[in-house]
């Protein structure tokens, strides 16, 4: 299986006039073709910025400080904006969170979609329109022939999201990045969109990255998960590993804070105390240490390296170091990845 994406030590910051906001502070991961990777974390954890960095849509005053991004075997780290624009919408596509504001209100759907198709393919105008209709049908827009001439404001939120997906997939990208695709939608529509993504993936084998803060979404569709906090990766693994064999205090904290709907039970929610770190003055050690029930001295001073727990499972926690005390649930093993 080919590696579709490899990110090494990505560091992205925003250089505002108040200071440098370090949004991503050293992320490394890779994805295989056909994976559905979920990146989960709180607001400000750096998940969106990671995604935007991969597609190189970081705007002033932001910049990718350090690191490399290798897409489909090609190093795209230093590509210019215009070179990237050949890739975007073509081999890498992205859809965004708020469908209400993500479509240009003064153009028809036909205009918006054919523009993208014509940009990246050799089709004629007529062929482009036909292809757009085909895509609209694929995503489940009823009566596409008449609706294609409509304007965005004439669609509901769920429909607009589908249009965005149709546009993004129209040129058969190898990688689709979905930034909180369902957050702004009703729960029922959420389910439809997720189901749509799964279906499309099955047909085209597109690799997908889904950014979300909703563990439920992750559980539904993802094959692999990255947990981020404070600009750094905390844990990475397959869905099963991260859900059932989590070995990071943050991940475990997340699991405990999800309400369990079991009839008759009256348990209490266990929130994670404290609040996320200030990314302008990030703490020198592990970003989660102020809130971690198992924090050690070293955690405050140095960020933990990733420990290999299996071929697919890694976790950045000092508890996994051979010199750390034994804590239940944190079986050590695996070497450090330096």
């Amino acid at each position: 299986m080919a590696k579709i994406l490899e990110v090494n030590n990505l560091k992205t910051s925003f250089f505002t006039h108040l200071g440098e906001v370090q949004a991503v502070r050293g992320s490394s991961f890779s994805m295989n073709e056909g994976d559905i990777l979920g990146i989960v974390g709180e607001s400000g954890s750096g998940k969106s910025v990671t995604a935007l960095s991969v597609i190189k849509l970081i705007d002033e005053p932001g910049k990718i400080k350090e690191g490399s991004i290798i897409f489909n075997g090609r190093d795209i780290t230093n590509l210019s904006n215009s070179e990237m624009s050949d890739l975007r919408g073509n081999e890498i596509a992205m859809i965004f969170q708020d469908p209400m504001t993500s479509l240009n209100p003064v153009f028809t759907i036909k205009s918006l979609m054919t523009e993208v198709i014509l940009r990246h393919t050799e089709m004629s105008k007529k062929e482009a329109v036909a292809h757009a209709l085909h895509m609209l049908d694929l995503v489940g827009i009823p009566e596409p022939e008449s609706r294609i001439n409509a304007y965005p404001h004439q669609f509901s939120g769920g429909m607009r999201q589908r249009v965005m997906i149709a546009t993004a997939l129209s040129c058969n990208p190898k990688l689709l990045i979905a930034d909180e695709p369902t957050t702004a939608l009703d729960v029922t529509i959420q389910a439809q969109i997720l189901e749509l993504l799964l279906r499309l993936k099955k047909e085209t084998n597109t690799s997908i990255i889904i950014i979300t803060h909703d563990l439920g979404v992750i559980a539904e569709v993802c094959t692999d998960i990255i947990v981020m906090y404070g600009g750094m990766m905390m844990e990475k693994g397959t869905v099963d590993e991260v859900f059932y064999e989590a070995r990071h205090p943050y991940t475990n904290g997340l699991h405990s804070s999800i309400p369990h709907v079991i009839s008759g039970s009256r348990g209490r929610l266990i929130p994670i105390e404290g609040s996320p770190p200030d990314l302008m003055k990030p703490p020198p050690g592990c970003p989660f240490s102020p809130r971690c029930p198992h924090a050690m001295k070293i955690c405050l001073e140095q960020a933990a390296p990733m420990f290999n727990l299996s071929k697919t499972h890694t976790s950045a926690c000092w508890l996994l170091h051979e010199d750390a005390p034994e804590v239940e649930g944190y079986i050590k093993g695996g070497d450090q990845i330096d």
């Binding site: 050949d86 975007r88 965004f96 993500s102 479509l103 993004a168």
Partner: peptide
């Protein structure tokens, strides 16, 4: 606006984004 970001994400050339997508809205 988000729709400008969408246009860029879909690979539209920067000059087209400016001249077509942005200006038309800006003139309203």
């Amino acid at each position: 606006q988000d729709y400008i970001r969408t246009a860029r994400a879909n690979g539209i050339k920067e000059i087209t984004v400016m001249a077509r997508h942005a200006v038309k809205n800006a003139l309203i």
